[in-house]
Design a protein around this nucleic acid. Structure first.
Length: 327
DNA sequence: CTGATTTGACCGAA
DNA sequence: TTCGGTCAAATCAG
């Protein structure tokens, strides 16, 4: 693992690159209107990638709590939880272990950093969804009606949770007051960064285990698809390939890069905004679709330019606000 | 067929 | 007991 000082150095370099890219963009926009859209888009891609790298570097550079890959306790043979008080779920040993893990998770959850963000969706202007993507892929695992809230709350966790033990989660809820505004609560830092450095190569017999229940198989294959594709099957689409692209091969896949400029973006990447936008007075079913689609929509350069996504507030509940690392 | 989403049930905290 | 958060089987979608 890198030293803290190394990461800061890396961060400085990234910031420098981002600044230069921005200047180049400004210069090209001001001096030569003839600069074609493609070139501008490329610049935007580079800048987006740099911004994400910066965000990642900031996360890594945190002095505490981000380097460790949180691993949940597994099937300790000598630690059977006390017999459950009649829960119909807790019969099998597997179930017992799951319950144990869940309790541990509840304990850990309180220690996780938490911060909020408000995002506004407007239907005017043609800006890019720049800066809104968090660069990680999310998977929806629940939705809940919240007392006193008009709109349901969506629950998302990092796609790499099972493969990298990444405990990052987020909650997305549409604001009661302004239907254009979404409240997003992040919890936990991403620890899945490690996947880029040490792609876990699963043993062949781990790739597909037909003896397991379907949902268990899914977890196994996900580990495969988001780490290192052994076969040529495009299991998760371009993003999977993108994830493993080295910097030298990225340019050869500009088609993919154009659509998926973020190394961590996956089909489940949540940018909160579908390529179509829901009108402020959209029905509840549309809202559900919105939040859901938002979790599935790959963003940024392919987003419908008729929508501008503005971050209207960043309200750090937790001091380690990832966007404010290192000032 | 595989991965993602939906949704009712379950659990712990308040 | 209520409510928020999570699980996981069923279902959907590509």
């Amino acid at each position: 693992m890198m030293e803290h000082g190394d990461v800061r150095l890396l961060l400085n370099l990234l910031l420098q690159g981002e600044r230069q890219t921005r200047q180049l963009m400004e210069a090209s926009a001001a001096s030569s209107p003839s600069v074609n859209e493609e070139s501008r888009a490329r610049l935007q891609q580079i800048r987006s990638s740099l911004e994400n790298a910066i965000a990642m570097a900031k996360l890594i550079s945190r002095p505490e709590g981000t380097h460790r890959l949180i691993s949940l306790p597994v099937a300790a043979s000598d630690s059977p939880p006390p017999s459950n008080s009649g829960s119909p779920r807790s019969e099998s040993p597997e179930r017992v272990v799951k319950e144990h893990e869940r309790r541990e998770m509840c304990k850990n959850k309180k220690d996780l950093p938490k911060w909020k963000r408000q995002v506004r969706v407007t239907t005017d202007s043609g800006g890019l969804a720049e800066g809104l993507e968090d660069g990680c892929s999310w998977r929806k695992y629940g939705q809940k009606e919240i007392l006193g809230a008009v709109h349901p709350r969506g629950y998302y966790r990092c796609t790499h949770r099972n493969t990298a033990g990444c405990l990052a989660t987020k909650q997305v809820q549409r604001s009661d007051d302004d239907p254009c505004v979404f409240d997003i609560t992040y919890r936990g830092q991403h620890t899945c960064l490690q996947m880029l450095q040490e792609p876990p190569i699963p043993a062949p017999d781990q790739l597909y285990d037909t003896g397991r229940p379907r949902h268990e198989q899914q977890k196994q294959t996900m580990a495969f698809s988001f780490s290192f594709p052994y076969d040529s099957t495009p299991i998760t689409g371009p993003s999977t390939q993108n994830l493993i692209l080295s910097s030298t091969t990225a340019s050869e896949n500009s088609g993919y890069m154009g659509s998926f400029p973020l190394p961590f973006t996956s089909p489940a990447t949540s940018n909160f905004f579908p390529s179509h936008v829901v009108a402020p007075n959209a029905s509840e079913s549309e809202l559900t679709g919105t939040v859901s689609a938002a979790a599935s929509t790959v963003n940024s350069l392919n987003i419908n330019p008729s929508f501008t996504l503005n971050r209207v507030e960043f309200d750090p509940v937790f001091p380690s606000d990832p966007s404010n690392f290192l000032g």
